[in-house]
Design a protein around this nucleic acid. Structure first.
Length: 134
DNA sequence: GCCAACGTTGGC
DNA sequence: GCCAACGTTGGC
């Protein structure tokens, strides 16, 4: 079982939108590193959903329900999509500030490589964020 | 709203 | 293959 963090701008697509639709088709990624991470995702992997720009906080947990397949928004075969379903919203959203302030989380890509939109998390890091959000 | 950092594109 | 120019992302 692997753990991931995916970013979205809540104005475009938020965790609540995913809850409303009961699933999410995660497409439109046009970055190789993010794409490579998506290809590594397996059914059942847990994914933290982070709201960038306006909120800057981890909003909720999702789960991979369909592994990578060709991105339906383009004919370009280089890009892929995955399907997610919401698991639960965090009791308390975890802000970027909190993540940055925690020395156990200072090495995650969210902090070190802020423009990457799909990144792996170690179990310890994933657990740590959940802890902060409970 | 600004701007730094980064990724991509395209001319040479 | 290099690198300048450009576009985009995302924190502040």
């Amino acid at each position: 079982m692997n753990y991931w963090l995916m970013k979205t701008e809540p104005e475009t697509y938020s965790y609540d939108d995913m809850v409303k639709e009961k699933k999410a088709v995660w497409d439109g990624v046009r970055n190789y590193q993010a794409r490579n991470n998506m290809k590594e995702m397996k059914k059942g992997d847990q994914v933290l959903i982070y709201h960038s720009v306006s909120d800057k906080e981890v909003a909720g947990i999702a789960e991979v329900v369909k592994e990578h397949y060709p991105d339906p928004t383009t004919d370009d075969t280089r890009w892929v999509a995955v399907d997610l379903k919401p698991v639960r919203k965090l009791k308390k959203a975890v802000s970027l500030q909190e993540v940055k302030a925690d020395s156990a989380l200072e090495n995650i890509a969210l902090v070190r490589h802020s423009r990457l939109s799909v990144m792996p998390l170690k179990k310890a890091e994933y657990d740590r964020i959940l802890e902060k959000g409970s």
